[in-house]
Design a protein around this nucleic acid. Sequence first.
DNA 1: GCCAACGTTGGC
DNA 2: GCCAACGTTGGC
Length: 154
Amino acid sequence: MSTIWLMKSEPAEVSIDDALAASNQTVPWFGVRNYQARNFMRDQMRPGDPVLFYHSSCPEPGIAGLAEVAGAPYPDPTQFDPKSPYFDPKSDPSEPRWILVDVKALRKIPLVPLGELRRHAPLSGMRLLARGNRLSITPVTRAEYNFIKKQFLG
DNA sequence: GCCAACGTTGGC
DNA sequence: GCCAACGTTGGC
């Protein structure tokens, strides 16, 4: 049984449109620098897991598209690039600290705003909505996922 | 720009 | 191992 994920991206950096325009509609999920989120990618994600593509830190935060995990985890190359904002001088190339997966965008959806998600009781347990949540990758339950699809995607 | 919440760092 | 200080996230 696959796990379902919600993954936040700043659209100014990689939007759902950017992902759909990428080669094979696939983008590496670079830049995660939080151990819990890394561990989800490294230890729990499997190719084909459904992903809700969420836009954060932008004028209209919300779910912007559907995607899926596209491959096995591998080291995030930006951690070794001194010119990258995600450069991590403490990461040893022989034992990379930051791991990512590729994500394949499937389709853009009419934006489901954060405020709309908060409005529905069946979604009140979503990790995304928890007070103080900052985690950029969170699991989504099958019930939450099904509700979102039924409610917002007809 | 503000600020609540949370994660990380580093001295002890 | 504790915990204060600091840095970051991310909505508003």
